[in-house]
Nucleic acid binder design. Structure first.
Lengths: 338, 338
DNA sequence: TGGCGCACCGTGAACGTTCACGGCCGTCCC
DNA sequence: GGGACGGCCGTGAACGTTCACGGTGCGCCA
């Protein structure tokens, strides 16, 4: 038996096989300088003790490798999934690892999860996390300071504790989208907002309307809903109810926009004939709904790359990276829904 | 400067601040027994040296924590995303961590990625990986043996090296789906297969047709395509071309089924009036396409739980778990497409 | 028969951190 | 004035593994 309560170590195996640590290492790692008989004895002992090398100890001697945590609320949301995919690939490109943390709906579970994750990472990236989610972070992380592990927001809102932030160029992006809608003859353009996200998108929209003499006579409809397909559906129903003459909708994100598409179909409003729909995010799924969704696309590969660059500089102690907000452009992808 | 080439350590900070290791630990971890002045000096030194505690060393003394790798080909595929979400949550429930590995399309990059991931995990779970993907694993892992790290397939095909496997009960699942189609009056039922996946689903389908006198007069159409929405679209086009009298299609998975839905819409075949469509997987997105997709749903939470159970037993050295194939049931969720 | 080389194996040391303990100095109280 | 105590700090040891080195015994050849 192993003498300590936990798993068995290499010396347990060595003792059982009647050899030294080093011989165990040699036998189990297919190195030279071990006789066949000894190797067999060691392997037998390792199996009997169910020996598993301690990864932490191995990493310790083999030099540090970098691990970055990715915190999100729901990976089954395709936006987060595509972002995670991009981050995983970009991280692999640099030899980093990404630790996944899907905190889900339960706050207390999420808190425990984050506390556990934090012990294993060198930095944390967050996406779609609002103030509530930030509060779930362990107090020691929140406090931050000199030793605090770098926190980077991949999008979404600002927060005092953040060491860096990637913001989307919603300004020119939304302007381009609205230009496009106007160019195709739309005049009653609504904006469907997220009820939890930041309100910068709505602000740009409003400014555009005012700047282009597009303000609704009876007041621009103010619709916002949950950031989900259901939310988009409900918002669309609200919208046509409150503004029957709407002929275009710019939607906070693609997921909600897909809900809008579905609701329009239910309400027998043809897209794009009766009403045009533009989403934001550039999700792949947008190409497969009917009609295919016009969208303001985010290059997630670029976003991931920039994020890792910032983290790299942060971890390297480059103070220039702290607090900086990198800007990512949006590109309008016109498909069938406009 | 740190004397070693890499990052600075706690003793570098200690030397610079003119204190001992332990005092640095105390100062940086908000412990007692440090004077304010000393604490400030230590923090300053840590900042100047950009000190970051070595996670491996910390984990080493604080006892091992379990990390399981999740290997998949493309997280932007919603099936993998939902699986990853479930696994992340189930793992968190047990205090385990999930290391994400989206290997993407590039074989060589994938190989490097896997080699890198393997150094940090205690076990590997795979999903949707065929023989080709398995070959990307490092030779040392493939060889396996006593010390080999446990490999578990979350679904998909068998492989010699696998220590465990979770199989879906396609038998009764597909039977239920076909029963449902027959009960709603369908007689020309096609099956759209994956060109890369295992062929057990098709076999069940064929046996059912033969057992229920549903074999097509001119031969059952054999359609298979890539496991993607595009693949589903192409398959559907093929299908209506080769079998214009088709009135139902059972599709290998939901992602392909969504493609089928889209193609049917393009071909002006109404779903479900002209042709019924049933997918497999139970993806959330199926509720948001039009019409909503009837599907054979997999409980991904259960799948993840079972997977971690198997890994737990495997890591605990329970030989009963090896080679065992746990079975997960499928439940038919009838929505609008049938 | 001495020496050389090879096959096989063992012993510190190191990785970087935390824990348990012990030491020193000043203050306060009896 | 001596003992107790508290604030502050340092020193081994330990976590589990691998690396670099050194050692032993045996065969082979000059």
């Amino acid at each position: 038996m192993a003498k300590n309560s936990g798993a068995s170590t290499i010396v347990d195996v060595a003792e059982r096989a009647g050899v030294s640590r080093q011989t165990v290492t040699r036998a189990l790692n297919d190195m030279v300088d071990v006789s066949a008989a000894t190797r067999a004895r060691v392997i037998a002992a390792a199996m009997e003790l169910n020996y598993r090398p301690n990864r932490a100890a191995q990493n310790m001697v083999h030099g540090r490798r970098r691990t970055v945590g990715l915190v999100l609320e729901d990976l089954s949301n395709p936006y987060f999934a595509e972002l995670a995919s991009a981050l995983s690939r970009a991280a692999a490109e640099r030899g980093w690892s990404v630790l996944l943390c899907d905190i889900g709906g339960d706050r207390e579970k999420g808190r425990a999860q984050l506390a556990s994750i934090v012990a294993g990472v060198d930095a944390l990236t967050l996406t779609g996390c609002n103030q509530d989610t930030m509060d779930l972070l362990p107090e020691a992380v929140l406090r931050g300071g000199a030793l605090g592990l770098p926190l980077l927001m991949l999008d979404g809102a600002d927060h005092a504790r953040l060491n860096g932030r990637i913001v989307l160029d919603v300004d020119s992006g939304i302007t381009a989208a609205l230009d496009h809608l106007v160019a195709t003859g739309r005049r009653r353009i609504a904006f469907i907002d997220s009820e939890s996200g930041p309100d910068d998108r709505r602000k740009v929209y409003r400014a555009y309307l005012e700047g282009h003499d597009l303000v609704w006579p009876a007041g621009t409809p103010e619709i916002s809903a949950e950031e989900s397909i259901e939310g988009g559906m409900e918002a669309a129903e609200q919208l046509v109810l409150r503004a029957p003459d709407v002929d275009a909708a710019l939607v906070y994100n693609d997921v909600m926009a897909i809900g809008v598409l579905k609701a329009m179909s239910r309400l027998h409003r043809r897209v794009p004939e009766d009403v045009a729909v533009v989403g934001i995010d550039g999700l792949q799924i947008g190409r497969f709904v009917t009609p295919e969704l016009t969208t303001l696309s985010i290059d997630k590969g670029e976003l991931a790359d920039v994020a890792l660059d910032v983290l790299d500089r942060l971890l390297a102690g480059n103070p220039a990276a702290a607090g900086e907000a990198k800007v990512i452009g949006l590109s309008l992808v016109v498909r069938e829904s406009t």
